[in-house]
Amino acid sequence: MTSRTKAVAVAGVLLGLALIAPFTDAFVILLITRALILAILAMSLDILLGFTGLPSLGQAAYLGIGAYLTAILATKFNFGLGWSFWVVVVLGILLAAATAAFFGLFAVRASGVYFLMITLALGQCVWGLAYRWNSMTGGDNGINLPGRPAFGIQLSSDVAYFYVVFGFFALSLLMLYVLVKSPFGRSLEGIREREVRMRTLGYNTWLHKYLAFIIAGGFGGLAGVLWAHANGHVSPEDVVLTTSVDALLMVVLGGPGTLVGGAIGAAAVLFLREYLSTLVAWWQYVLGAVYILTILYLPDGLMGVATRLRRSSIALGRPEDAKHPVIS
């Protein structure tokens, strides 16, 4: 598949989603809305994990910052419930990016397992504040939002809010796609493959990684603002370690370094957590099994399966090619 047909395929799926979603029931619309928001989070993490090779164990922190900012502004200052919603979106992105810029000073120096550990610690700092800073964050109970914004359009309608989120998702996908295809994005991939070589070639690899970290934080913040209004509630659960781990699974399950894979992974994980859990009591066995089987049998995620199938169909006449599936 050329990149043009891929783009057409993605656009077609998105268009189909936008047309079909309003005709499903309220529960499904909200489910899709939430999946799209988590898809933004997963794609932000994919910039780090898939394209730069930095496995972050604290991406939920930026979701939390965007979400808590939205909730605190709405409840304490009555701000962000009209046209000012758009200001909150910008503020959420900026605050999360600024936090990432600060955290990045510590984290980006590290690599591999130390990067995992340090992002875990930084994420737990944010969680600790959310959980304990009662006067600001409501502690364990979290914060209930007064309602979704209204500016001519009532976003309290789930369909209207779906379209807002859909717009942000499509825009994020486009912007991140342009980013990873740009020379900057190519350099990130170079750093993922061989950082020493990129440094020898004269690239400031620290700065590249640092900028990627900030960009990922900013998109995480955007997801957070949308997340707060989707649920009408924020709580420390949004920032907890398992949320960060879920985000990692979304990327790895979908296929790291593909952007779209993260979105597919987000939909799959949310489906397990929010839909399967309403059907069966033992849904966590399925979730755990998905984690384990993905790691053992899907090194390139679901997107990798598609590539592998295509390769083996091309390579029917040349069996030796089929024996070498791509392993990154």
Partner: peptide
């Protein structure tokens, strides 16, 4: 049975052990 097969890859270790943590959580609940 499981971790040995992964070799040295921190990300995959993290996700595999989290998967087991979820299994254990559900089993404990049951």
């Amino acid at each position: 049975l499981f971790l040995r097969r992964l070799g040295f890859d921190p990300l995959r270790q993290v996700l595999l052990t989290v998967g087991f943590a979820f299994l254990f959580q559900q089993a404990a609940l049951d």
